[in-house]
């Protein structure tokens, strides 16, 4: 599954304890614990300001954990919000 995050192509891999994100452009890899939910909530709040870096910095902060939702559901919401587009291989 390929996700475009604010026009930048990212690949996501959910692991038991974390969401891994590969940022296609810069080639950087991020590990976010408990992420899909955080990612979604954060993105929906400030879509225009979200660069991957700022997102990672904010989400890596354990103090600001938003509530959990399902990944597929979250991506659907994101797509509706026009923030990410989702492409299945």
């Amino acid at each position: 599954m390929t996700v475009y995050l604010v026009n930048q192509e990212c690949d996501f891999r959910p692991m038991d304890d974390a969401m891994l994100i590969f940022h296609g452009g810069s080639g950087e890899t991020y590990q976010l614990a408990g992420v899909p939910a955080c990612l979604v909530a954060e993105l929906l709040r400030t879509p225009e300001a979200s660069t991957l870096e700022s997102l990672v910095i904010r989400l890596s902060d354990p103090e600001s954990q938003p509530p959990v939702v399902l990944v597929e559901e979250a991506l659907e919401q994101l797509r509706k919000a026009g923030v990410v587009s989702v492409r299945h291989p």
Partner: peptide
């Protein structure tokens, strides 16, 4: 070791990851 952490650690050892 949790999978996410194992991933991040082994990536450091991957010569041709970039």
């Amino acid at each position: 070791l949790a999978a996410g952490s194992a991933f991040m650690q082994i990536v450091k050892s991957a010569f041709n990851y970039p």
